[in-house]
Amino acid sequence: MDSGIDMNTTTQTEIEANTELAIGTSALNLWYGDFQALYDINLAIKQGVVTSMIGPSGCGKSTFLRSVNRINERLGYVIINGSIDVFGNNIYDPEVELVQVRKQVGMVFQRPNPLPTSIRENILFGHKLHNRDKKYSRDDEDEIVEESLQQVLLWDKVKDHLKRKATELSLEEQQKLCIARLLPVKPRILLMDEPCSALDPKGTAAVEELIWELRGKYSILIVTHNMAQARRASEECIFMLMGKVIEHTDTADMFVTPQHQETADYIEGRYG
């Protein structure tokens, strides 16, 4: 680990003790140029659990999410120190290959962003990308497509028109497809950045149901503005405020007995 970082010793022992973590961060600070967006984030996010991140706009929850698959650093002016361990490996280690990180840590966006090709091609895009050295028969590919779409509860709806353009699907179906196309490369973590905010209530319910369905198979981290959604669709909840983590507990506890005044104020709707 980076020796230049002054680390809180208690936090470190805590993290080392728990090897079952999907994501563990220690002393994570992040700046956009001169603006510090994350302050000393020490999080331990468990494997196979749905964890939600809530907090008012600009609290850094999306920034954190985007640091976990290193999509942030594309912006040249982002400075990060501290570490983010994904299954025990620091993904900011210099020898880490970005492509391998992205394979294991999939991301779903606020607006569904299927590629402007067929449903089938969307599912196979990542698979083909990462298996260029192997030959797959058409049957193998069909199987992958079916399995992925089954997992997101979309197979029955689209199985007869896999050649249709993905962009012609409804937003809810598009968002499910965006989740499905991550699965063939066998990710272990799914990051979701307000995955339902572009959907209508019915679509939201369907995607939440899917998230609940995927729990256990994947470690899921959802950023959401919608407190009711956090409450319904997550097992653990992290509350952030102004770049800092205020509270991280079981979702049920967070909404019933928040430990901090800020958390209580936020979930009661006094600001945000």
Partner: peptide, 13 residues
């Protein structure tokens, strides 16, 4: 659209 690029990058392209 930029979203297409993001989709690809996030799949490790």
């Amino acid at each position: 659209p930029h979203a297409f690029r993001e989709a690809c990058w996030n799949m490790g392209a």
